[in-house]
Amino acid sequence: MIDKQPEINKSGNTDILPSVAYKLGARDAFGMPALVLFASMMGFGSLARESGINVWHAVVTTLGIWGLPGQIIMVEMLAVGAPIFAIALGVSAANARFLPMTLAITPYLKGWKTAWWRRMLFAQFITLTPWAMALQRFPAMAQAERIPYYTGFSIVCLTGAMIGTWLGHSLAGVLPRPLTLSLIFLSPAFFAMVFAGVRQRAGVMALACGALIGPTLHGWSVSWGIPVTGLLAGSFAFALDDLIRRYQNRGRP
């Protein structure tokens, strides 16, 4: 994919080549991120088997949906025999977060001149773990390094996730129940730690508001509680951050 060296390293005095950025991404993923995805997809794999879907279904689901909450909803609704339309709606609502996530990360790729199908492919790889990592690392990175870094990071995560799905499916029923539960608990725990590392004021406020409103709105609508949470809590945090920003900048030209 990387056929030539970057002409100019826009923002950087660090002259990192794409191939180096690619390896850096892969190395960053090769640790807790890939391990968490591996383990939580093991949880998904064994859940998938309990819902009566075979190992190929499960692995293709991981590759195609590439977002654990939506995948879990799909197999859970399959298990209770929900109609296909309801499943599609449930999965879609669970994954509506990909819209604001994509919108938040794409501006970092401004000036990314590439074929449309590569953009479409990049979109498929937007999921929580690499996204959160990218949001933290992209600002300090040169333009030419971002996509290679993201690609390297994603490939390691996806490989771990697919192996995890396969293994979880194979070991379903063999794994003791406490271990399965712990594997499923691993992913919210990891995300909680990732979010605890967010330092920007707006992000911290959005996270806090979302965590408060999310479970509350669940009683209102199981499917749409989360997207609406994002809209309400996110907008509130943004407005509050903007207000503080203006207050701090008052009197300045």
Binding site: F191, G203, G210, G234
Partner: peptide, 14 residues
């Protein structure tokens, strides 16, 4: 980014 963070926090909290 705020909306995305809020969605994710809501999801994890839930």
């Amino acid at each position: 980014a705020c909306v995305a963070y809020a969605v994710l926090a809501g999801l994890v909290a839930r």
